[in-house]
Design a protein around this nucleic acid. Structure first.
Length: 275
DNA sequence: CCGACAACCTGTGAGC
DNA sequence: TGCTCACAGGTTGTCG
């Protein structure tokens, strides 16, 4: 999936075309995603105006208004989800589970693996939704910095890479950007988080932020089947230092990039550069 | 609290 | 060519 940069690129791509439009109809062809799409979602969305698209971690939040009501359409792209803007009459193909008819424009949700989520939160605060209320710090927000990371990790004994990917701790950082950020900051993914010094936390926080910002600027990654709102692909993958480079030569020290398993996920790192 | 692991599901690429 | 297997961006729940 989409990690934070891909979701943010999606948000930025959709907003100009979608904000200000009214939902004519929601068509659900297949409701069984990670959680079932609420059966009443079509009626909740009918005739709402989308006034903004926000993001919390990897969740897209569509701010939906009626004259006297407000609510949020919540979309998570899972591992393989995508949202595209298409001409209204575009025929659906396999795995095109949901269409949002915006009147002269079609917003289509496609998700082959169906790990995504489409949900609804009534009221003014999307954050009250159970999927969102336990989420951790935003890595591109004000709070996130070396000082925060240092303080937040003191009591943590889990490997720093596992913690970076824990959405209850820090949102938006997935397998690719965790690996890249740790490489950039010269920190081993195996290091217990609570053993990181203040300087290491400064370097890591900066690396996380810079990696995410660079990926957003590059238009997101384009692993496998990931596509943008317009069907285009990102090119951040050209810049991967360690992700997916098992056995290849490290670009910094001429050592060999290794792949290990952590928490059921592949971790790529350079044992020479990362301590 | 922690971590390891399985589960959810389909597609793809490698190896035989 | 065709089969089987491992693995892929995420999240959640269970078990020790």
């Amino acid at each position: 999936m989409p990690e934070l940069p891909e979701v943010e690129v999606c948000r930025q791509g959709l907003a100009p075309a979608v904000v200000g439009r009214r939902v004519r109809q929601l068509t659900v062809r297949f409701p069984m995603l990670r959680a079932p799409i609420p059966p009443d979602l079509p009626e909740r969305l009918r005739d709402v105006e989308v006034v903004a698209i926000e993001r919390r971690g990897k969740y897209l939040l569509f701010d939906c208004r009626r004259p006297t009501e407000r609510g949020w359409l919540i979309i998570h792209l899972g591992m393989s989800g995508s949202l595209r803007l298409l001409a209204t009459a575009t025929p659906p193909t396999l795995h095109d589970h949901v269409d949002i008819d915006l009147g002269g424009l079609l917003l289509r949700y496609r998700d082959p693996r169906r790990f995504g989520v489409i949900a609804w939160q009534e009221g003014a605060e999307a954050a009250r939704h159970p999927l969102l209320c336990g989420l951790g710090t935003e890595p591109l927000g004000q709070e996130f910095c070396g000082d925060w990371l240092y303080r937040a990790t003191r009591a943590r004994r889990s490997p720093i890479k596992t913690l970076l990917m824990d959405a209850g701790f820090l949102v938006g950082v997935g397998n690719i950007y965790a690996a890249e950020s740790l490489f950039l900051s010269g920190i081993s993914p195996l290091r217990p988080a609570g053993r990181l010094g203040r300087a290491a936390c400064d370097r890591l926080a900066a690396a996380v932020r810079n990696t995410l910002i660079a990926a957003i600027a590059a238009g997101g990654s384009s692993i496998r089947d990931y596509v943008h709102h317009d069907g285009g692909r990102g090119d951040f993958q050209l810049d991967y230092a360690v992700y997916g480079r098992t056995g290849e030569v490290c670009r910094r020290c001429a050592g060999i990039v290794r792949c290990i398993r952590q928490g059921g996920r592949s971790t790529f790192y350079c044992p020479g550069c990362q301590r």
